[in-house]
């Protein structure tokens, strides 16, 4: 089925310029993905020798975490547990107006149009989101048995794709779910326990330094996370943070 949509897209030349919404009409097919709909728009713009809409995307199968638009007020759009690239147009109505905005957070400055800079996430991981093991130092993989439930819980958190929709969804612009997911992934496993307290302290410190907000338990992040990562990870991070602040006598 063919459908016609009105798109209101945020256009912003670069980081420093002031952006505004532009209105576009597109005729599309309901089987297209949301990004393919933008491809169609861009083709038309290029044919008219106009500047195409910049948006970030890569794998288009919901795993790389590059895409992420705020569609009618919701990061990754209306479908639960789905990235923008996996969202198909059949979830929209013919004649609908669709507002498309970039992620908004101080720590995610706009680069152009719908593209934002998420390098702050990399720096949070660099602050301690790893296990310090050099290549070749590892003992046999079966040396430490791990309860399969524990691994599953760790994997639930490790599924984070680093898209930043948690920050975009949070009215406080907090990166707690992202940070908590990494802390939970590593901290729940025996391999990650050794550096756990130090990791929590340094990652949280970096998160604050990047200018992310504070968690006030609104849980909008959990609702918008395309990998449905639970806010239980945040409670785990909080518990660990108290532990590293008050219980541990090592200064990280």
């Amino acid at each position: 089925m063919h459908m016609k949509l009105t798109l209101k897209i945020w256009r912003q030349e670069d980081k420093d310029s002031k952006g505004k919404f532009e209105s576009y009409e597109v005729k599309i097919n309901e089987h297209m993905s949301f990004l393919e709909m933008l491809d169609v728009l861009n083709q038309e713009l290029i044919e008219l020798k106009k500047d195409p809409v910049a948006f970030e995307h890569d794998c288009r199968e919901g795993i790389c975490g590059a895409c992420g638009l705020v569609i009618n007020g919701r990061p990754h759009g209306p479908l639960q547990g789905t990235t923008t690239c996996q969202l198909h147009m059949r979830h929209f109505k013919d004649g609908q107006t669709v507002w498309i905005e970039p992620y908004r957070a101080k720590a995610f400055p706009v680069i152009k149009d719908l593209v934002v800079d998420r390098s702050s996430f990399d720096r949070i991981v660099q602050a301690g989101g790893f296990i310090s093991v050099g290549t070749g130092q590892a003992p046999d993989g079966n040396t430490i048995p791990i309860e399969s439930d524990v691994v599953e819980k760790s994997m639930d958190a490790a599924a984070c794709i680093g898209c930043g929709s948690c920050v975009a969804a949070c009215p406080n612009g907090a990166a707690m779910l992202f940070t908590a997911a990494k802390v939970s992934h590593l901290g729940l496993l025996p391999q990650g326990k050794i550096e756990h307290h130090g990791r929590v302290a340094t990652m949280v410190r970096q998160m604050d330094k990047e200018g992310f907000g504070n968690c006030s338990n609104i849980y909008a992040c959990e609702a918008e996370c395309p990998k449905e990562i639970s806010v239980d990870t945040i409670a785990y991070l909080n518990r660990s943070y108290f532990g590293s602040t008050f219980m541990s006598d090592l200064s990280p």
Binding site: S148, L186, L189
Partner: peptide
């Protein structure tokens, strides 16, 4: 074989049997 050991040590959550082994 070394790759698996290395990845386990890094915290890759490979699937486990009920007994906790890979």
């Amino acid at each position: 074989t070394e790759i698996i050991d290395q990845c386990v040590a890094q915290g890759v959550p490979f699937a486990r049997e009920y007994g906790g082994l890979l």
